[in-house]
Design a protein around this nucleic acid. Structure first.
Lengths: 165, 165
DNA sequence: AGACTGGCTTAGCTCGTTCTTAGTCAGCTA
DNA sequence: TAGCTGACTAAGAACGAGCTAAGCCAGTCT
C-alpha cells in the first residue's frame, strides 16, 4: 500500500500503542462542529463583528454567540473593544496567533474539496500569492528541503516522549 | 490584520457573495464526525480489517460499520475481498486515491495540535522523510516556487466561474 | 453435527448541536 | 424620557452521532 504510513521504533506494531494524545484528534475537537469552522472561515475572510459572523455564516445568533465564546476561551480568537463614532463601545473578534496558524488546515481542506467535492466544476475560489500572483497550495516538505510524497513518510515517536523510559 | 485574507475582484466586499460551494465545508462534511476521522487515521496507519478499525479507534462496532460504509460510498475507501489460509473470504478496507489525498489535511491538523494542543509537551509522534530522515511539515507555496506567508494571500474567483457571466 | 469466530445488523437510549422564538441590556438619538 | 439598535441570553424542540446489549450469518475447526 503506497498510501499508508510506515511505523518505526516503538510504534511498530500499531496494536502496541494507543493514540490517546493524538494531535489531529485534538485539533479536530476544536474545529469539528460546523459552527466553529464557519466562524473560523469568516474570521480569515475578515469578519470581526458579531453581526458579520451571524449573517455571513448563516448560523443562528445563540449558536454563533456560544461558539464565539468557545473559540475565545480556547485562545483562537480574542475580544477587543472598539468604538465607531457616535456608537457605543463594542467588541471585535480577532484571530490570535494560535488562530492564524489554523490557516494550513483550512487550505488543506480547500485543496481536497476543490478536487474531490466540486463535481468536476473546479475551485470556486483560489488563493494567489500577493507578490507574484501565482496560485498557492500546500506541499509536504522535509527539513532537508525535499518535496515529500505520501509514500515516503515514516512515523516516529516525538522527542519529548523518547526520553522518559 | 496580518492574519486575514485579502479579497479580490467580485469577492470584494465579503457581504456581496455567499460561500455556498465552499470546498472547505464540503471536505469537513466528510471528516467532520469523530468516527470518520478516527477510521481515516487508522487507514493511514495501515488498518484494513473491520476488527482492526474497531479496536484501534475504540469505536463501537455499529458506528464503525456505519462509517466504513459511508467512507466507501463516498469513495475514500474501497472494499476488496481477501482470504487468509484456512479462513473464509473477507473484505479489506483500503484507501483510494481520493482517500490518500486527505493526507495533507491530517498533517495540517497534526501540525497545529502539536504546537497548540499538547500543553507544551511537544509532538507525541512525528513524520520523517524516508529518504533523508528530516522532519516533514506542510508549507504554503505558490506556483512560482516561493514560500508564502498567511499575510501574502489573496482570494480570487476560480477559473471556471469567471467565464459564465 | 455442533461450537466457535469475525464481521457485521438491529433496537433502544443518551447527549450534544442546532434551530426557532422570545426576551434582555447598554448606550446613542430624538 | 422614550425609543432604537447591536449584541447578546434563555427556553424548548428536533435531529444526529455516539453508546450498550443482543442477535445473525457464513465458513472453519473438532
Amino acid at each position: 500500500m503506497s498510501s499508508t504510513i510506515t511505523m518505526t521504533g516503538p510504534l511498530e506494531p500499531r496494536s502496541g500503542w494507543t493514540a490517546d494524545r493524538c494531535s489531529m484528534a485534538r485539533t479536530l475537537d476544536v474545529v469539528r462542529n460546523r459552527a466553529s469552522f464557519l466562524i473560523l472561515r469568516e474570521a480569515f475572510y475578515g469578519a470581526t463583528r458579531f453581526e458579520e459572523f451571524v449573517s455571513q455564516t448563516g448560523l443562528s445568533e445563540p449558536v454563533c454567540a456560544a461558539r464565539l465564546r468557545e473559540l475565545t476561551d480556547v485562545g483562537i480568537l480574542r475580544r477587543e473593544p472598539y468604538q465607531e463614532p457616535g456608537q457605543r463601545t463594542r467588541h471585535a473578534y480577532l484571530l490570535t496567533e494560535q488562530g492564524s496558524e489554523l490557516l494550513p488546515v483550512l487550505v488543506a481542506l480547500m485543496q481536497w474539496g476543490d478536487r474531490w467535492a466540486q463535481d468536476g466544476l473546479g475551485a470556486p475560489v483560489e488563493f494567489h500569492h500577493a507578490g507574484c500572483g501565482g496560485r498557492v497550495g500546500l506541499e509536504l516538505r522535509c527539513s532537508g528541503g525535499h518535496a515529500v510524497g505520501g509514500e515516503e513518510l515514516q512515523l516516529a515517536v516525538g522527542p519529548q516522549r523518547q526520553q522518559r523510559s
